[in-house]
Design a protein around this nucleic acid. Structure first.
Length: 167
DNA sequence: TTTAGGG
DNA sequence: CCCTAAA
């Protein structure tokens, strides 16, 4: 019996989180009979089977970290979709959520002592840039809290192109 | 679908 | 990495 189907030519919506082709989630369509009011549909309970497989660990190469830092340097920390597009070739396995997570670990890495870091050492030059961006973010945050500036109507910490002004 | 954070 | 509430 086939439990988890590997849909390849289906018409299911493709989401960025599709685990390397292993398709996950399906879009269940509820019979719109009693159309209108609030009705919680039973929805098949994902019993035992079709439990999506966890993606394999894929450490970022120093090269990729550099691309990530470079992209964040230009786009900021609030648009991982664009960061993904600007720093990685679409087919790459890393999703923008992964990049967001990687940035989080980079900030952590930059804060701990070099001795407690693991894996291929990330050039401190890069970690310095990460810290710099974080500092800038914290500064803006502080200035806002102190009513020294007001950019509340804009996304937090996004940077804007000096030229085209595109966020 | 993307953002944003906790799990 | 995953899960997912919100937007």
């Amino acid at each position: 019996m086939t439990i988890s189907r590997n849909i390849t030519e289906s018409d299911h919506e493709m989401s960025v989180d599709d685990r390397s082709g292993l398709v996950s989630r399906e879009l269940l369509t509820v019979p719109d009979s009693n159309a209108g009011e609030l009705e919680v549909v039973p929805m098949r309970k994902p019993k035992g089977a079709e439990v999506a497989q966890r993606r394999i660990r894929r450490p970022f190469s120093v090269s990729e970290v550099e691309a990530l830092v470079k992209a964040v340097e230009k786009l900021g920390t609030g648009r991982w979709r664009d960061v993904k597009l600007h720093a990685f070739d679409d087919p790459k396995p890393q999703t923008y959520v992964d990049l967001k997570d990687k940035w989080k670990t980079l900030v952590h890495t930059a804060r701990i002592s070099p001795q407690q870091r693991r894996g291929e050492p990330v050039p401190h030059e890069l970690l310095d840039l990460v810290m710099a961006d974080e500092q800038e973010k914290d500064l803006v945050e502080m200035l806002q809290e102190n009513h020294l500036i007001d950019i509340s109507k804009y996304a937090n910490y996004v940077k804007f192109c000096p030229q085209c002004g595109c966020p």
